[in-house]
């Protein structure tokens, strides 16, 4: 069985963001980077599938600069067999259609039985790439899965709907699924596995070799939203803060009456 899992490196969302010169993206300087949260579930599920079927080869793909190799190494330490790094210093400037085009071009002749992606990225949040890859490869696609089971060339998944309801879906492989938070419990790489991962294959492919489509949209401007909320911001000594808050709750709400 051949499995592909696609991951993205994103900044920690608690970072203090700045707009980059040019005004169309955030400045990548001074940010802490990590694996997109949704993709951690995708990697874990791919590794669990590999462990289940035994005879499997699991590739992790990531598009980005040299910096993303750190995140790829985490995926290798979690249990992926090999890494395909699409070397691109302007991955952030590419829209979902281009990103999907690159992945589909890579996957086209490789006969993957299953492709896992996150349901969306934490920065762009477009929730398009997985579905577009499936369309480009004419694969069935199930999005937003919170449960996954495989047996004999068939998968059974649960898709999450609003309110916590789930839809039960079955499909034959080859298939692409996009993974939602809570699908499983992503493992922490162990030290021996981190050491082993260092020896795993991690090839870089220049993005020009795979980018065959053109952008259909671009970011004209990035900016901070206007602060609408006239909310009060309290800072300082915790003891005083607690007293202030109690005072406010007494004045503004009936709950301490």
């Amino acid at each position: 069985m051949k499995i592909l899992v696609c991951i993205k490196q994103v900044p920690d969302m608690e970072s203090k963001f700045k707009i980059a010169a040019g005004g169309t993206w955030y400045d990548p300087a001074d940010l802490a980077w990590r694996m997109n949260e949704y993709d951690e579930y995708a990697v874990e599920q791919a590794v669990q599938l590999k462990e289940q079927v035994k005879e499997a080869d699991l590739t992790v793909l990531c598009i980005g600069s040299e910096r993303v190799k750190e995140t790829m190494k985490k995926a290798l330490a979690m249990g992926c067999d090999r890494g395909a790094h699409v070397a691109d210093d302007n991955a952030a400037g590419k829209e979902p259609f281009e990103i999907a085009g690159i992945i589909a071009e890579y996957a086209r002749d490789k006969q993957f039985d299953l492709i896992f992606t996150g349901m969306q990225s934490q920065d762009r949040g477009s929730a398009q790439v997985g579905v577009l890859v499936a369309e480009m490869l004419s694969l069935p696609c199930i999005t937003t899965i919170v449960h996954f089971a495989y047996a004999d060339g068939r998968i059974e998944v649960k898709r999450e709907l609003e309110g916590g309801m789930k839809a039960l879906i079955k499909a034959k492989t080859p298939t692409l699924v996009t993974c939602q938070l809570g699908l499983n419990t992503p493992r922490y790489p162990t030290l021996p596995n981190i050491m082993k991962a260092k020896k795993k294959e991690l090839v870089s492919i220049p993005v020009q070799d795979l980018l065959k489509v053109e952008a259909r949209q671009e970011t004209a401007k990035m900016y901070f939203p206007e602060k609408k909320g006239g909310g009060l911001v309290l800072e300082g000594d915790v003891g005083q803060l607690a007293d202030r808050l109690i005072q406010i709750l007494k004045e503004k709400t009936g709950v301490l009456a």
Binding site: I19, Q217, E218
Partner: peptide, 19 residues
């Protein structure tokens, strides 16, 4: 301009469509 959120709503961007 089509306005969408970025990074958990911390940022926004205006999108220009070419199709």
């Amino acid at each position: 301009a089509l306005v969408v959120p970025v990074c958990n709503g911390k940022l926004r961007r205006n999108v220009q469509v070419k199709t």
